[in-house]
Amino acid sequence: MNDIENDKDYQDIHEKYQASSNELPPLSIDESILKAAYKAVGSEGETHANSAEQSEQNNKFGVDTQPVKRAWYVPLSYVAMLVISLSVVMKLALEPDTAPMIAQTDLYQADAGLMDNLEQKELSSIQEIKSDSPRTLEDTNIERQELSKAPVAIAVMPAPTQAPAKVAEKAAMKKAAPSVASDDMQRAEQEVLYRQERLAKRKQRQNQEIMKSRAKLESDSVLMSEAADFASSGISEDRQEEKAKKPGVVAGLSRMERSDQIKDQDVAKEQQVLIDELVSLFENKQYKVLEQKLKEYRLIYPRIKDKEVLPRAMLDWEAKEIGKTSQKE
């Protein structure tokens, strides 16, 4: 570059050219160009009349100087936004948004009420069982019916603080949206049924235990009375004969057997106490009392073999004494 600019010939030409170069475009052209430039920038808000004038100018210039047309998607996007927002508003307005909430709160209240009822009834039933007055099946059925009716009634009933118009509106909403409420109702009913079953099972178990304890008490009392009868009426020689003569004793024995089966551990302890007593009587040579106790023992524990439990000396003594008495008689 410097080579060219430093060249004398170039400098000469440059000076001459610059001296001769003074032409400018006509003013009319200046005006038309500037006008077109202004229009191009500020043409977006211009009217249709200006576009006709501009088209003439375009023909003059031979180029398209029309303003850029507004994109079609701008108004379309506005319309789309409007439609979407309207649809959302409409949906929100028509949707029963409060109905499920009301149904749920009512169901929760119903559930809470049911829980309280159940707890109270459970307590009362336990007290009844304790007081030894068993509930009948009819009572249980009535309770079940009441409980099954309770959630429906509470769910349908409006809150007392609400205005009547609002209550009617809510009822209508509930009708409009039955699926949500019915699901919750079913759940509540299932919960109630489950609790009822659990209560019934518990009651059954308690009744069984009471029956068992009663049977035990009865058997013990009968046994004791029979044993006392035996002792007072004198000891017979042959057990078979006694059995034939006194069927009550046999019945008492059979009950004893049953009671033995029920409580093996207690019986074993009692048996051991009795054996110890027999042994102490034998050692102290209290033979008369020993005889009675031995008979008693055999009545209580008829199936247990003597050889396994009682001392051999005592058995020998018994054999001798019983032989003597039978010979005397």
């Binding site: 475009p25 006509p26 052209i29 038309s32 160009i33 077109a36 430039a37 191009a40 003059k60 210039f61 031979g62 180029v63 398209d64 100087t65």
Partner: peptide, 16 residues
Amino acid sequence: ANEIFQDIWMKLVNAR
């Protein structure tokens, strides 16, 4: 020259 001169400036305006 006037015509082409105008064209050039209008091209510049349109391609701004």
